[in-house]
Amino acid sequence: MLFHSTRQQWLGNIRADLLAGIVVALALIPEAIAFSIIAGVDPKVGLYASFCIAVIISIVGGRPGMISAATGAMALLMVTLVKEHGLQYLLAATLLTGVLQIAAGYLKLGNLMSFVSRSVVTGFVNALAILIFMAQLPELTNVTWHVYAMTAAGLGIIYLFPLLPVIGKTIPSPLICIVVLTGVALLIGLDIRTVGDMGQLPDTLPIFLWPDVPLNLDTLMIVLPYAVSLAVV
């Protein structure tokens, strides 16, 4: 029974999992770099973190509606900590965030989310969407007309492709958008910014390090407010 359940969980929907994995893998690269820039850390840090999170969650299992990758909401909370204290304190705050989340899960504090009104959640998500949009505006200013054409074409593919009778519901439109527009840009040789222009892409696996911060009360007082905020978000 256990083997059947595990097999069903891992191999029960291979096609959808494969398509979703390809879309997320392709979209996560520029997203992780963009959120790294927002947080004020090296783009490689965001790529390494997103990779590690995705692999770990795929093994230990996630939950419906849980984002297991780089998110703008978390990046926005890290800006001040990174600017004032550096990356090592961010790593310490991240570890403390994990401890707080484990404690919250053990205490079943997630049930408190049922008391949060839908309007609050909607406002939070809309504000996050606005912040992400504002962060992308520099990519749409002082650029050539090719960028606007590619942006319009991408939106057209994403929103119009699902309207096709059969194939539109089989292949995710974001995947079609990424593959088609990347092919067009390479074929024509368009002079537009690429993901590589946003930051250096790593060519090696990450090296796991323990945060080099003093283990004392002062460090705890620095990272605790950020860790609590990150855990709640």
Results as ranks from 00 to 15, higher is better:
Ala70Asn: 12
Gly168His: 06
Phe35Met: 14
Leu175Gly: 11
Met134Glu: 05
Asp191Gln: 14
Ser5Gly: 06
Leu164Ala: 10
Ile37Leu: 13
Leu76Arg: 07
Tyr106Pro: 00
Gly183Met: 08
Ser68Thr: 13
Cys177Ser: 15
Ser50Phe: 06
Asp191Thr: 11
Ile188Val: 15
Ser114Trp: 00
Asn13Glu: 13
Arg63Trp: 08
Leu11Ser: 13
Ile158Lys: 09
Ser173His: 10
Val179Gln: 07
Leu90Lys: 03
Ala104Glu: 07
Pro211Thr: 02
His85Pro: 06
Asp212Ser: 07
Val179Asp: 07
Pro174Lys: 11
Ile59Gln: 01
Ser114Val: 07
Ile59Gly: 01
Ala54Arg: 05
Val233Glu: 12
Ile132Thr: 11
Asp191Val: 08
Ile167Pro: 00
Leu209Gln: 09
Ile102Val: 09
Met113Thr: 12
Val232Ile: 14
Val195Arg: 03
Gly65Leu: 05
Ser58Thr: 14
Ala231Lys: 04
Leu26Cys: 13
Ile102Met: 04
Val184Trp: 00
Ala93His: 01
Gly98Asp: 00
Ile56Arg: 00
Gly86Phe: 05
Gly189Val: 10
His4Met: 10
Ile33Trp: 03
Gly156Glu: 09
Leu47Met: 04
Val143Phe: 02
Leu81Val: 12
Gln136Asp: 05
Leu19Glu: 12
Leu140Ile: 07
Gly110Ile: 02
Pro211Gln: 02
Lys169Gly: 10
His146Glu: 15
Leu209Lys: 06
Met66Thr: 08
Ala104His: 07
Leu11Cys: 10
Pro211Trp: 00
Val213Tyr: 00
Lys169Cys: 03
Leu96Asp: 01
Val195Tyr: 02
Gln101Gly: 06
Pro64Thr: 02
Ile37Asn: 09
Leu112Trp: 05
Leu186Glu: 05
Ala20Thr: 15
Ser229Gln: 12
Ile53His: 04
Leu107Glu: 03
Ala129Asn: 14
Leu11Trp: 07
Leu186Trp: 01
Met198Phe: 08
Leu128Ser: 13
Ala127Arg: 04
Thr182Pro: 03
Trp210Met: 11
Pro174Trp: 03
Leu220Ala: 11
Pro225His: 08
Ser50Leu: 09
Phe115Gly: 01
Ile176Thr: 05
Pro64Glu: 00
Val116Phe: 07
Ala127Asp: 08
Tyr226Trp: 12
Tyr148Leu: 15
Ala16Phe: 12
Gly183Val: 04
Ile59Cys: 04
